[in-house]
């Protein structure tokens, strides 16, 4: 026994290290870890708490019911507001001071409707240059209800103001 005393000292060092580890571990493992699985349950809350940027069409329609009514009559019924107007969370949050800029039809319409062989055949496509030259799309089409002759023109000026 006397001759293996140094091994006992070694074992004591190891045991000390192990104990240290166990104590440290209980301090540092986040409290919500393992609640639902092998992760920090509070991380779910962190992600859920992120800022909403797109208001969602329901929020838009709450105020802009007139535009929604117009849009719902036409081919763009299934196109949500922010698809063209961009994210409006801030505007919805503070409609008085945050005013969204009006989209530029010259750039906007072709984003979807410029012809491309990879687009589904049934999707209405034009080669803008041949279709209208330099004439702006909204000269003939009302964006919220684009079929010519279908929409009352003044309704759109409401948004333009």
């Amino acid at each position: 026994m006397k001759d293996s005393e140094h091994l006992i000292r070694l074992a004591a060092v190891f045991a000390g290290g192990l104990l240290f580890f166990v104590v440290i571990r209980s301090f540092f493992v986040p409290s919500s870890f393992g609640l639902y699985g092998h992760y920090r349950a509070d991380a779910i809350k962190d992600v859920a708490a992120l800022q909403v940027v797109h208001a969602g069409h329901e929020a838009c329609e709450g105020c802009h019911s007139d535009v929604a009514d117009l849009k719902n009559k036409g081919k763009h019924a299934h196109v949500n507001c922010e698809a063209c107007h961009g994210p409006q969370g801030q505007h919805a949050n503070d409609p008085m001071s945050v005013k969204p800029p009006l989209p530029d039809p010259a750039k906007l319409c072709v984003t979807c409707h410029e012809a491309n062989a990879a687009k589904p055949r049934s999707f209405p496509q034009i080669v803008a240059k041949d279709h209208a030259g330099d004439v702006a799309c909204n000269t003939c089409h009302v964006p919220h209800n684009p079929r010519i002759g279908d929409a009352p023109a003044p309704a759109h000026s409401e948004v333009k103001k």
Binding site: K2, D3, S4, E5, H6, L7, R9, L10, V13
Partner: peptide, 19 residues
């Protein structure tokens, strides 16, 4: 490094060798 141990007797070294 020796963990304070001073024992290098034949028997102790035999233990080391075996371990």
């Amino acid at each position: 490094l020796a963990l304070g141990s001073d024992n290098i007797s034949e028997a102790a070294l035999a233990v080391d060798n075996h371990a």
